[in-house]
Write a protein that binds this DNA or RNA. Sequence first.
DNA 1: GCCACTTATCTCGACATCAAGATAGATGCG
DNA 2: CGCATCTATCTTGATGTCGAGATAAGTGGC
Lengths: 155, 155
Amino acid sequence: MAIPVSSRRSEAATHVWLVLWKAARAIGQNAMRSVSALGLGLSDFAVLEVLLHKGPQAVNVIGKKVLLTSASITAAVDRLESRKLVQRRADSKDRRSRIVQLTKTGRHLIERAFQKHAMDMEETMAVLRPVERVELIRLLKKVGMWAAARLDDKQ
Amino acid sequence: MAIPVSSRRSEAATHVWLVLWKAARAIGQNAMRSVSALGLGLSDFAVLEVLLHKGPQAVNVIGKKVLLTSASITAAVDRLESRKLVQRRADSKDRRSRIVQLTKTGRHLIERAFQKHAMDMEETMAVLRPVERVELIRLLKKVGMWAAARLDDKQ
DNA sequence: GCCACTTATCTCGACATCAAGATAGATGCG
DNA sequence: CGCATCTATCTTGATGTCGAGATAAGTGGC
């Protein structure tokens, strides 16, 4: 995915989008590097991180949290399971549902990795002072939620 | 690609990243919708848009502008060429280089499409007032450029 | 002019993601 | 209860992207 390049006014929506996209991409690549030492992609890392901080979860619950479709989580959990970092077990309440939980190996891995990753991200955001971060978050949430709402109501 | 979900302080770097990522995703999906009516993906649209506003360009020059690797532009140009929206021709100065230019059909398509797309994007950014957009851009450029620089100097 | 190096493009194989559809189980209306 | 509908997961097939490597052509030192 790439995005349009041209725009006249500096506050034209397409220009905002271009800058946003480039920033997201650059930061994403930093995040990717930080994590790829473990042989993980960002999605797999995110899944482990959810399991670490929220405990065992049903497949589709994880999917909602990390913004992946059901096909993509299934694939991610498959990858993690084949490396024995997580395992699926039955849900005693709902036989359709599969609960994913960290194995001992997986827990060790993500515990070590998460600290390092958080530090790496602090470094890639080091130019932004706390006030600036708060303001950035406010603005991003404002557009982001508006944009997300637009997606919903046009089905 | 998905991203970690948890973070304690609201200005923690991982939290900024989470919000940025979600906003980029929501806006990106709006952009995608705006363009998919044409049967184009965002990358293909971006390539056409560059050709419209900057004139015929060498393949890798387009690649740099829309942030795609050489493999990806080749693929994008192949797609566009098979739909007869662009064509490749030789560069008289450099025989390695291939210049991509819009066909008549391609030009008509992108001219009509670009206006609509710019308007759609204005709508998906409508919540942000001009001052806010300027501030958002400033902050995004600050992190974005810092993050990009970090990528470069670690090879 | 020759050779090493760089640049421009393309090819190949791998991969993550998605949309749509298939199952199987849960839920609730009548 | 029984049937329609919803929900959770997985499967399939397609897509777009990337990294690495191949090829061909330009460039510069000597």
